[in-house]
Every structure is written in structure tokens, then in C-alpha cells.
Amino acid sequence: MSESEGTGPVEVVFPTSIDAILDSDIDGLLDTKEKAAKVTASDRLERAFLEVVEFRRAHGRVPSSTTLEIAERKLGARLDGILASDDKIAALMELDEFGLLDKPEGPASIDDLLGSDDIDLLGDESGLLDVSDLPVRRQVHDSGEVARRTKAQDFEQYEPLFKQKHVELQEGTSKLLPYSGMTHIVPGAFFVLNGVMLFIAEVGETEYKKTTVRENKRERLRCVFENGTESSMYRQSLGIRLSDEDGHIIVQTDVPEILTDDEVSGYIYVLESLSDDPQIAALKDLHKIGFSRDSVERRIKNAVKSPTYLMAPVEVVATYRTYNLKASALENLLHRVFAEVRLDLTQVDRKGRNYDPSEWFIVPRGVIDQAIDLIISGDIVRYVYDSKAQRLVERGR
């Protein structure tokens, strides 16, 4: 060791053991970084899907995979990839609070297929597909399974309905439109087939018929005709006849726009929580308002495992079957009407992640029913929800 001028020797003491070395590392130079928890493929998939869910929550629609907006297009392509895999759909079903994973039904008829050709893939500028000059070949709707018309049972219950519908047509409150697809063949609908008015009184249970290629589903109808007869033809058979024989549907002239969207049927449902969590059980008039294209019972069967349902069993207190109605728009309207009383609560899911349920509202059941009626009538724009009075009131009052 050298000696500094005017001073004694400088002593440097070296540690004599590993522990001493570590103890002397006051700057933490020898600290090892903690190894990050391994991210599994399942974690990455769930995180990716939750980004799509957040986009739906923020914008009120699913992301598009064809938009010029790069960030949205990325999410849209991600959702398309998920929907193409049944395994991914099954793995993410519990996180799907908006029904993003519900598979849309295919077109019910050629008319529906052509009507949904938004980008004109089936366009025929050359006229190659024009068969208007060919002889018309009428299909013979007859087979061993054809439903013959018989005398209608309890026709006296339906006769006033036909008379009322004729009055509406004369007064202009109802009108005839060309038949436009099987999504309109629902209970309560009126059609005109070969000059005779018919009423869809009932739709039977779905039957499944296996072929060598696939399993087809079909449903028997109870069609009551104004001449006092009835038939139990299949829904598909009636659709074919209405298409081939220039059938018409009878619709109300003043139906609000929300009821004229050609949308697959679904359910608006209202649930009550059966949670034994004191924080939740103490909330009076707590209801979840949601939409499902599948049956409500199937949708809620895993409620106890999902933060969407507050990790607890639920009870269905009301369902509203929707036909030819953009039910997701109806759901969004209800959410906006009751936005002020949305439940402000953070749940923790089974993996320890925070989750904020977005479809629970503190509002009396009767007010929800009233709001749906006002939406259907188109008068909801004149009302707001008064949370203190717990009722809908006209704006400006």
C-alpha cells in the first residue's frame, strides 16, 4: 500500500465470506431481480379478449376488422380469430358480458342471403344470373309430411283478430309489405298467402332431423287462416311458399324504427342476485339488465363463477322475447336511461383480477317494465329517470 503525503497508511479490509460480501453491498449491486411470474397462453388469450370487451363497453359496438383505424382493426381481427375457434370460445365464455361470442345464425333463405350482401359480392352487372325470361316452374308443395288444412279449433278466438286487421288495412294503420325472410315468421305475425290472410298462433318445439350430411332443425307452426281452417306446416315450408307465391306480411305503419331492424330474435332479461354477500344482499331493487341470443337459462348456468353475475346465483324475474328487433339497441337504451343508478362495485374474479360489473342497476322492476314500453312506443326520448322519486318523469318537469 502507498502512503498519502502527511498521513499514515490507509487500511482496506476485504470481506472474508459470501455473507460478508452480500452484507457489504449497500448499493444493491449484487441483488438479483425477482423472476416475473410466467404468463401462460390462457392468460394471454384472456387479456387479449378483455381488450375487445373494453372496446365494446367504451364504444357500444364490436370492433371492425375492416376499418382504416389500425387499433380498432387489430381488435376486430382478434375477435374474428377467437370466433373461428370453438376452444377459444369455450375458454372465454365466462368473460363474455356482452354476448360477443354468440355465433350469429346463418341466413334463413336465399332472400336473406342476397339482402345481407352489403359489399355486392353477388352483383350481376352482366345479367348472367337474370332468369326472368325463363319459364316459371312452380314447386309442388306436397309430400308425405305436408300438413293438410283442417277445420280450425276455437276459431272464434281468432276471428276478431282477422276483422281488426282488415280494419287496420283499410284505415292505413297497417300495410302490406312483400315477404322478406323467415325471421319474420314468429307468433303473432300476420301474412297473406294466395289472397288469404293467416295468423301465426304458435311455434312448436324445435325438432331435429338427421341427414347423411348434417342435423337440421325445424319447427311446426300452428297457422290459422281467416277462412276458418288451420295448418301445422313447418316454418321452412311456409317461408318457401311465401317466397314462391309472392306472399306478403302485414305490419303496422307507425312502428318505431327500433322495431323494424331485421335482427335475429333474442331475449332481454332482468335478473335478481341471490348473493349472500351482505354488501350486495342489502341493496334493494338491484337488477341486472342484459341481452342474449341464446336461452337465458343456458346463459346464466355458470353465474356463480362469473363476476358478470356478481359471483353468485341469480334469479330470472323477467324476460322479453324480441322478434325482428335490434335487441342490443334496446338493451343499450335501457342502460342509458338508468345510467345514474348503475351499481358502483368492484368484484374480484377467481384469478384475483378486479372486475367492474356494468349491467347491474338499482331500480324497481316495475320501472324497468315501464321503460321498455316507452322505448317500444318511441316516447322514451321525453322521459328521464328520477332516482330520488324512483320513477320515470317527463323532461323539464
Rank of each mutant, 00 (worst) to 15 (best):
residue 4 S to Y: 05
residue 9 P to F: 03
residue 10 V to P: 00
residue 15 P to L: 04
residue 15 P to I: 07
residue 16 T to G: 12
residue 24 S to K: 13
residue 27 D to Y: 13
residue 37 A to T: 12
residue 42 S to H: 14
residue 48 A to G: 09
residue 52 V to F: 01
residue 58 A to M: 10
residue 58 A to Q: 14
residue 61 R to M: 06
residue 64 S to C: 09
residue 65 S to R: 05
residue 69 E to A: 14
residue 75 L to G: 01
residue 76 G to R: 02
residue 79 L to C: 02
residue 80 D to T: 07
residue 84 A to C: 11
residue 87 D to W: 10
residue 88 K to H: 12
residue 88 K to F: 10
residue 100 L to S: 03
residue 100 L to N: 04
residue 102 D to F: 05
residue 106 G to C: 14
residue 108 A to F: 13
residue 118 D to A: 15
residue 118 D to M: 15
residue 130 D to H: 05
residue 135 P to L: 08
residue 141 H to P: 05
residue 141 H to R: 14
residue 143 S to V: 06
residue 145 E to N: 13
residue 146 V to N: 12
residue 148 R to D: 08
residue 149 R to G: 01
residue 150 T to C: 13
residue 151 K to C: 09
residue 155 F to E: 01
residue 162 F to K: 06
residue 162 F to A: 04
residue 162 F to V: 03
residue 163 K to I: 10
residue 171 E to H: 15
residue 171 E to M: 12
residue 173 T to E: 07
residue 181 G to H: 01
residue 182 M to K: 14
residue 184 H to Q: 14
residue 192 V to Y: 02
residue 199 F to N: 00
residue 200 I to G: 02
residue 202 E to W: 13
residue 204 G to W: 10
residue 204 G to H: 08
residue 204 G to Y: 09
residue 207 E to T: 09
residue 213 V to E: 13
residue 214 R to F: 12
residue 214 R to P: 03
residue 215 E to F: 15
residue 217 K to H: 14
residue 219 E to D: 12
residue 226 E to M: 04
residue 228 G to W: 00
residue 228 G to P: 01
residue 231 S to L: 04
residue 234 Y to G: 10
residue 239 G to M: 02
residue 241 R to C: 06
residue 245 E to Q: 12
residue 246 D to L: 11
residue 248 H to Y: 15
residue 254 D to T: 14
residue 256 P to Y: 08
residue 263 E to M: 12
residue 265 S to G: 08
residue 265 S to F: 09
residue 265 S to H: 07
residue 267 Y to N: 09
residue 269 Y to W: 05
residue 271 L to Y: 02
residue 272 E to L: 07
residue 274 L to R: 09
residue 279 Q to D: 15
residue 280 I to Q: 00
residue 281 A to W: 05
residue 284 K to W: 06
residue 286 L to C: 03
residue 293 R to G: 06
residue 294 D to P: 10
residue 296 V to K: 00
residue 296 V to E: 00
residue 296 V to M: 01
residue 300 I to Y: 00
residue 307 P to G: 02
residue 314 V to K: 00
residue 326 K to F: 14
residue 326 K to D: 08
residue 328 S to H: 10
residue 329 A to F: 11
residue 330 L to F: 07
residue 334 L to S: 01
residue 336 R to A: 12
residue 341 V to L: 04
residue 344 D to W: 07
residue 348 V to P: 05
residue 349 D to L: 02
residue 351 K to G: 09
residue 353 R to K: 14
residue 355 Y to F: 12
residue 368 I to T: 02
residue 373 D to F: 15
residue 380 I to Y: 01
residue 385 Y to M: 05
residue 386 D to G: 05
residue 388 K to D: 15
residue 396 G to Q: 06
